[in-house]
Write a protein that binds this DNA or RNA. Sequence first.
DNA 1: GTGGTTGCAAAGGCTTTGCAGGCAC
DNA 2: GTGCCTGCAAAGCCTTTGCAACCAC
Lengths: 128, 128
Amino acid sequence: MAIVRFTRQRQAVLEAVQQSTEHPDAAKIFDEVRHVVASISLGTVYRSLEALVAEGHLLQIQQPGMPTRYDARLENHAHFVCDSCGEVFDVLTKLPDVTPLAAQALEGFDVNSARVEFHGQCKRCRQN
Amino acid sequence: MAIVRFTRQRQAVLEAVQQSTEHPDAAKIFDEVRHVVASISLGTVYRSLEALVAEGHLLQIQQPGMPTRYDARLENHAHFVCDSCGEVFDVLTKLPDVTPLAAQALEGFDVNSARVEFHGQCKRCRQN
DNA sequence: GTGGTTGCAAAGGCTTTGCAGGCAC
DNA sequence: GTGCCTGCAAAGCCTTTGCAACCAC
């Protein structure tokens, strides 16, 4: 296994995601990071994101038909996805842990996490 | 709005997903459907899947880095995703409805469904 | 007959990868 | 100095789309 280096590029990618209020995708992150490391390439953004996810610094959010988004909020939390505009919002309310229920239902499986995702219409789309 | 036609192709695609024990992706469905409608094209499979999802006959399951999978089980249920092999399993245990909690946390939003997804290692991968 | 649907092939969007040079350690 | 990382560009994978022929209604 290779030793991970904290290069300017990698650090800039991490910070771009952390400072984003939304849940940006690779293209959006690329745009942001260019302001910090002008020479960075999109390929490096993807490789940095991959490394950061592997190291547990970022989470991925995937929705059908949309590019992968990244989330720097590591505490366990749910997401709300607007079915109209595709925007993703954090849901920080504490939810009951249903992992034990699944573990019971799936004998012989190792269930170690649960992700909850809500769907509907966000405030703004609802008003239009 | 167009009237939807139940062509041989569309019906064969639906049946292929319904008869599959796993949660197949478009390529896998294409392979299956060819045995029924030999001349079908992959493009038609995608268009049929799109129509079937829009009509509510199928659900989509998306995981980062994997092609979209389809699920014909319409009753509300959770999925377990094996982080080792990527396989998706149904979790049919009844889980508490957390939608009201999210609705409360997201004022002004219209929260109309919740999806729960468990992660871990499946029985087979655990034994290897 | 009408217009949604199909098959084919090309194009599209997002992401990964090969390579030579560069830089963190 | 070593070998991981970068920038660039090409390739890859999955999916969508344009078009003319086709067929369900």
